[in-house]
Write a protein that binds this DNA or RNA. Structure first.
Lengths: 236, 236
DNA sequence: CGTATCCTTGAACCATGTCAAGCAATGTGG
DNA sequence: CCACATTGCTTGACATGGTTCAAGGATACG
């Protein structure tokens, strides 16, 4: 269950073009290629455990992971989902005293490549553009968090749920039938939106009856985006 | 009301020792000293306006500012307070397309020194330690946001209010009589905690009757920290 | 000294959480 | 491949924390 000490698979983990790594030069990319180690995780596996030292950062190659924080009551709050190409963990490499307050958990079976921390430092030192690129990612994440915080503080559950469904479609896309490429349990929706499982179930039923979504078991598809958006912005 | 285009005062704005600037060398500090411009703002003034381009970052010299986000209903959500020595705005300098989704507003009369963006880039390029230092700050802020988000999603208003009072004491300290060095209106408390003004008023009265705090007009003092902490962690 | 802002209290309403129970789907071991 | 266990889904009934509305008092401000 500890971070990164699973079986190593040597499969080719292609680092996507459009990520944080885009400003690295050939040498630096090669350094990464040599340094990285690929791992496979199963659904439910803990990739980074809250409070445990992190010794590198990772790039997600396949599958989906969730960043979660456990509240005082032990309840899981989902902070965000990572998709293929997303990078995580660099935050906790900069300061030895900064242990992660969150855990990273596989939502599906997933593959990632792990890069030991010394390479992060090397790249920051040798390539200021890379440093700036990381900071940009951090800034975007911060804006995202601020939006979430404001939503949770000010919006009703129904509005928040609508907004999250839209976000998920935007981030993960849909399959040929329009179903979201991310199948969550009702409990995960609840832990993401910040509500009770029963409330999610009831609201999903409402959305369905209003023609906003369709459901096929765990798969959900948005049928009327405009109406959902309208709901997400309603107030009072 | 726009950012930074106020009267310039040439008062000495001492950059505190224990900040993001601690790893700069003499030359770089001197560069900053020459580049900075000092400004004074009055209570309620808008220092950075949501959606408007930011052309530099600032270091708060005196007073208190709040970072706020306006929800769809126009309601203010207070994201955090900055205290003397805190730095803000660097986030929005890295990417021309990243306009701030938040506003920065003076809670009290306050003074700050403003440093144009080119110097930020220069320091990041010339001094990787500085880059890392900024990233550390960003990481800490991120952890803080995650904690807030989880609290707001999972805790009752009473617990959150207790926790915020404790945070404020820790961040801003108290005067000789134990009163918090940050006097907020009930509405500001409400916008910080994520609740209605009336609820804050009622809960403050409860805290007072339980001996946790004392109140003198807008000034609040914690009298029983342990009990407050206990309340902040209760669940169910 | 009058106007604006802030604070307080009461009452009514309702969105959401909680509890309980049953069903459906999925997975596991014999 | 079936039986059993586990996990997830759904619904109803109920309790309640919190918002909203309304009104009045207190305090600060020009």
């Amino acid at each position: 269950m500890t971070a990164f000490d699973k079986n190593i698979s040597l499969e080719l983990c292609n680092i996507p073009a459009n990520t944080i790594f885009r400003f690295l030069d050939i040498d630096e990319l090669q350094e990464l290629m040599l340094a990285r180690k690929c791992f496979q995780y199963k659904k439910g596996d803990c990739i980074i455990q809250c409070g445990h030292r992190v010794t590198g950062f990772f790039c997600l190659n396949s599958g989906v992971v969730k960043i979660v924080k456990y509240g005082d009551s032990g309840r899981e709050q989902i902070i965000k989902f990572l998709k293929t190409g997303d990078v995580y963990g660099y935050q906790y490499l900069l300061d030895d005293d900064q242990l992660p307050g969150v855990s990273v958990i596989a939502v599906d079976d997933c593959g990632l490549c792990f890069i030991p921390s010394e390479h992060l430092f090397h790249m920051i030192r040798s390539n200021p553009k890379f440093a700036i690129e990381i900071m940009k990612v951090a800034t975007q994440e911060q804006e995202e968090m601020i939006n979430r915080l404001t939503d949770i503080a000010q919006k009703k559950v129904k509005q928040r749920l609508a907004k999250r469904l839209i976000e998920i479609e935007k981030t993960f896309g849909t399959d040929d039938n329009g179903y979201l490429n991310l199948a969550l349990t009702r409990e995960e929706y609840a832990n993401f939106v910040g509500t009770a499982t029963e409330t999610v179930i009831r609201l999903m039923a409402v959305f369905k009856s209003e023609g906003c979504i369709k459901m096929e078991k765990r798969k959900i598809a948005i049928r009327n985006m405009q109406k959902l958006q309208q709901i997400s912005r309603e107030f009072d």
